[in-house]
Amino acid sequence: MSLISFKDVVKKYDMNISVNHLSLSIEEGEIFGLLGPNGAGKSTSIHLLAGLLKADSGEITVEGISVDRQPREVKKRIGLVPQELAIYESLTARENVTFFARLYGLRGKLLRDRVSEALEFVGLGERGGNKPSGFSGGMKRRLNIACAITHRPKVIIMDEPTVGIDPQSRNHILESVRTLNKLGSTIIYTSHYMEEVEAISTRVGIVDRGRLIASGTKEELGRQSGQKEKLIIETDTIAEAAIREMHDHPRVEAVQKLENGTLELYLQDARTYVQDILFILGKHRMNLLKLQRDEPDLETLFLQLTGRTLRDGK
């Protein structure tokens, strides 16, 4: 039995379908990266799992317990790290963690031990008596995590936990995610930073327009998407007619013109069809400066599967 299961879940806001017959399984011990552009239904799915929203139909379970029927039991098993900094600026770091830990039902010595443990874990052990108003963005993010882990949840949902922080804090958080996973928590991790998801996730689910359009390991996703590769082309000039012609090529999925004048082409079996591309360049008198072939990464896979880039949702 999967630890987390979404079965044909639907959630509508008025006439808009936010989650559209979503089915998904997450196994115990996974770090599951959830990817999707803004408005894809990713946050709604998380809210449904955390018991903050009720599904219109379908069923979500955690350890076989229904979120709809026994929300309190499910919530005891979940630690939610919201995208926003959900902490109190007027309380010290220790008071923040203690307050939320008390609401998870911890008391007495266990409470004190777990609070200290959580603060140590995120590297704020010595700053427990300080108020977050004096913290850097990264430290606040870490405190945001500490508030969600004192009850040692089976499932930790991390919604964009590294937004707007310095690389050092980001590394600290990513390392914390791995450690929490090793300690037995299953992690659901959403991020706009594809490389983060790629680096820490054991499995990735791609959500678009409320549906799960693909899920699996990076290799599995590559296979699902038809192994589309990326050709990076640098030329002395760029002719719009050439770009249009590349678009029209039956094997080319997408052409992107970057700001620095570089072209990125997504196509199946680039080895075979690179000659066609070079022919188009020659025809439009574009002299080749650089040619590079990339295996599909998550960014590429995402674009191929959704036709949109992750960050801007286009």
Binding site: A50, G51, L52, R72, E73, K75, K76, I78, L80, P82, E84, L85, A86, I87, Y88, F100, L103, Y104, G105, C147, A148
Partner: peptide
């Protein structure tokens, strides 16, 4: 506005009591 209510809503303690 500051999302702490959101976090409280995801806790096992009944939100209305909190």
């Amino acid at each position: 506005e500051q999302w702490t209510l959101y976090r409280l809503g995801a806790m096992p303690s009944p939100l209305v009591l909190v």
